[in-house]
Design a protein around this nucleic acid. Sequence first.
DNA 1: CCTAATCTGCGTATGGCATACGCTTATCTG
DNA 2: CAGATAAGCGTATGCCATACGCAGATTAGG
Lengths: 251, 251
Amino acid sequence: MNGDVELPENVALAWGLRDRPSRGPKRSLSLDQVVAAGIQIAQAEGLTAVSMSRVASELGVATMSLYRYVPTKHDLLDLMVDTAFGPPPHPRGADEGWRPALARWGEGNVAALRRQPWMRHVPISGPPINPNQVRWLEYGLVALRGTGLRASERISTIMLVSGYARSWATLTADIVEAAARTGQTPEQVGLRYWQHLAVLTAPGPYPAIHELLGEGEEYDDDVDLEWRFGLDRILDGVAAMIDARAAASSQ
Amino acid sequence: MNGDVELPENVALAWGLRDRPSRGPKRSLSLDQVVAAGIQIAQAEGLTAVSMSRVASELGVATMSLYRYVPTKHDLLDLMVDTAFGPPPHPRGADEGWRPALARWGEGNVAALRRQPWMRHVPISGPPINPNQVRWLEYGLVALRGTGLRASERISTIMLVSGYARSWATLTADIVEAAARTGQTPEQVGLRYWQHLAVLTAPGPYPAIHELLGEGEEYDDDVDLEWRFGLDRILDGVAAMIDARAAASSQ
DNA sequence: CCTAATCTGCGTATGGCATACGCTTATCTG
DNA sequence: CAGATAAGCGTATGCCATACGCAGATTAGG
């Protein structure tokens, strides 16, 4: 019943569905070791330090040996992301509403990206198909159970939250990294940005930006408050739809 | 008054603020020509085809000559994105509400990314600072004028919409590209995904995913409807806050 | 008008990178 | 024990960004 759909090589690999051959020498490594070595390098020295030869030397094998474990470097990166993301936070509790559950799910996304910032540089290769990604999907859907949202709407809502988490984590991590590079604090980097914007827009017709800069409120920003702001807007919007549906169907 | 803030080299470059030296030979190219050549290659053959030597040969110059125009390849990519994104759609009209204006602004983001899909592969290098990026920022802020939102809230709202536009455009473009690569239609690629998901989750505890697959509603999806769904949730959430503020202050 | 300063284009070289190919050797099946 | 198969990996190919420095063009200042 399952057999009539062929899984792509990289997917089968991620799910551990490759049947081991019985002939030939034993492998001296496991796929997990290769993936772990990649993650360790990425975490310690950044994604740019992850090359096939670097991973191989970390494991004490020759570069080309890795290709017995992984079809391409990109597949390795996908596996690294799936492993480093890890499993989602615990699922919606029995008496937990959809909203706190989905909020926790979103926070979990941000937390994972903050723990392993290199992941934001691995380009998304498609819809979630690897084991942990699917677990995240499952828990996200669990959070939206019983809300009256249709299938495609539940998917869209999850995409909305995870996309926001990713873009927000990316922006803040970029600032932290720029600060580290230039020996400044992240606050200084933020301040610089507004100063540059002020200089550049001074001669031109940018009334709304000048208004913004004039309010002088943008420096004392707590980043977590900003994250919550966007998340709460999304959740408010979803809540409005769920409530409207519930009202319409009970009437 | 402006002079006490030094602009980084790449920013000055993007804004055309480099004072031309008077000594030395005339340049045979302009920065715009270099950027245009890069865009043309990216559009025709994808971002991976854009190398310094490829751009140079397109222009009939030697590779190293480009470095007289651009400090690094990454700066070139940033300039390419800023130029290819182009200016934002026309700003909020005098009698236009914030909501349609912000919706148009979001649609404009998606439209730009769909016109030049290679842009999604250029990693975001920081907050928007290049000329067109700043124009987009300005118009986004104009859309939110008079809503009662604070400065940091206006920024967060704009980030929310542009982040969503980017992640949505990325996902759909990935599917279109995967389809082109395998000679399938995008619909077939989507169908395959759900089939793979069904096979992989069949043995495991994925009740919410099975529920989703069981609804059988996910195949006939109109992508633009899905985009609108997420956008409307965001806008509803923002509207809720704006209305609550207005009610509180008029009371 | 000349000389010194300065800039342009670019040839060359360095030190990477992913990965195709094919060989040797270890291991298992029948 | 023979044949099949797979593992590890040496070698080679064809990319890549970019550091460095030189030759020739152009101009400013005397």
